[in-house]
Design a protein around this nucleic acid. Sequence first.
RNA 1: GCGGCGGUAGUCUAGCCUGGAUUAGGACGCUGGCCCCCCAAGCCAGAGGUCCCGGGUUCAAAUCCCGGCCGCCGCACCA
Length: 587
Amino acid sequence: MRILPDENIYDKIIDLAKRRGFFWPSYEIYGGQAGFYDIGPYGMVLKRKLIDLWRELFIKGNQDTVVEVETPIIGPSIVYEASGHVENFTDPIVRCNSCGRIFRADHLIEEKLNIDVEGFSLSELNNIIKEKGLRCPVCNGELGEVKTFNLLFKTQIGPYEGNIGYIRPELAQGIFVAFKRIHESLRNKLPLGIAQVGKVGRNEISPRQGMIRLRDFTIMEMEYFFNPDKKDCPNIEKYYNETLNILPYSYKENKKDFITVTVKEAIERNFVINPCMAYWMVIGKLLLLKLGVPETNMYFLEKGPKERAHYSSQTFDHMVKTSRWGWIEVAGYAYRGDYDLSRHKKYSNADIEVFEAYKEPVVMKVRKVLLDKAYAGRNFKSKAPEIMKSVEELDPDYVIREINEKGKININGIDIPKEALIIIEKDEKVSGRKFIPHVIEPSFGTDRLLYVLLEYAYREVDGRIVLSFPRYLSPADAVVLPLIEDDEKLINKAKEVYSYLMSEGFNVLYDDNGSIGKRYARSDEIGVPVAFTIDYQTLEDDTITMRDRDTWKQIRISISDAANALKKFIYNSADLGELGKEVETKG
RNA sequence: GCGGCGGUAGUCUAGCCUGGAUUAGGACGCUGGCCCCCCAAGCCAGAGGUCCCGGGUUCAAAUCCCGGCCGCCGCACCA
């Protein structure tokens, strides 16, 4: 595990990424458009492997509870009204006519005039600004009209004007609206994690920072649904002794640094609102470790009440240190409670609640208050059924207290003497209960991780760039090189080896252009972990050399062992020395 | 969105202030050839440029002016 270089390597990485086809700004030939990036051929392999690694840890590693789905990118407006995005993803902004600065209109009023304007409409905010003569706090210029700026990308579904759709700003809503179906199709089990990978769009006001802040990007997300009454978390025991670097909000206010605690401590000291929060944070940590980020270069930052999204009651940002941007957020872990499902229940009228049967039906002794039927009929005639029902709904304890004190109860202005009341106790069988599950959401920014992956892989050796990706993530498993260009015998042999490795399922490159040193350098720069070289000895005894990208050491092995050696080297992190005898090469 | 700085082959850059004879020059990379038995060697040849875009000034614009786009920095904004 390497430490990040102190030097700012951003420009070098961006340069390399463009040159070698990892990623670059989109729409370049038209001058570009901020906030959009293309992923190139090698970047695409990396990204795919990155996503697969996430799947491995979050889904496959938890296949007893977690499944994956795919839902649409565009949703009808009702979905994002229910989710709160139409309302809360919008900022009222006001522009100074003279200096052009833009302010949050509500914040400005609250600060300057000390008026609580939460929930005020645009025209109300406008009126306040006009009436109170509020001016630009910077240049004292006149303020323009209050406008909304919503970060949702808006579109129209079909040819019907007014049929508004939005591009999803997160994957979550697609999962929430389908929750009931997914949950039923999996025979109502809980806890249930529903994961999704996909593109989202956020119409950022002014995106900068290249791959770090995009208007269109890939998220890897999971909504983990569970019974809020069960305060345990399945399988967490095996991670009890794993450590987490946490900066709780209360510590942050006191300007303290993050602390390192075990998962067990984090739960016991209530740093996390629910043990499952800690569980997914550990899985997230393990993902980052596998990408090559050392634990000292990451921590979990708790967001304060005002910093959190509208749906969240606890959020941790997963921060990773980068050379250019300092600490950046690569993932968020949000406790969304029952906010989303409750909202969709309300807006759709769908029965979204989950029924959970008790292990055995619980027989409870239930006391009930009954009104003597004969008394009711005689005294209340046609109103009797109604009054009897009201009586039955009363709390028995209340009735007993009233009887003891007054000898009667009063209901809807009618006195009922204690002689007419019967209090019975009966057994009632309850086989389960209905509730709305709570949700914990770990959500990763894939493109940010891609950038982080490059930063942590980047190093320079003798003025040459080497991308030391973890071997299993590299854009190719190996490159096959004939030692000398333009020697037909070597080239034919090399192409045989190349086909053979491909047929074994490896992702292999071939290069016969330029001196051997140049080709090693090229493959190092792409981050290919292994180079197999075919030389004149190969033609005699079918052995080839296998070169390690990171040490430049070589061993000689027979071609028939190559696939097996490559497999061990890449997936079992074997040392080169374990796979064969090191050979001296002229340097 | 504001302010500052910048934008010249794949990459980095010279030229811009002081407009014209520079065919927009170089380095690296790329392609081909020669040579090469292991780490960007050498020699030769070649391809590759809307000088970010649009408008203006001028006989003449990569060069000066205006607007736009994009990038970096600062501010602002930010689930």
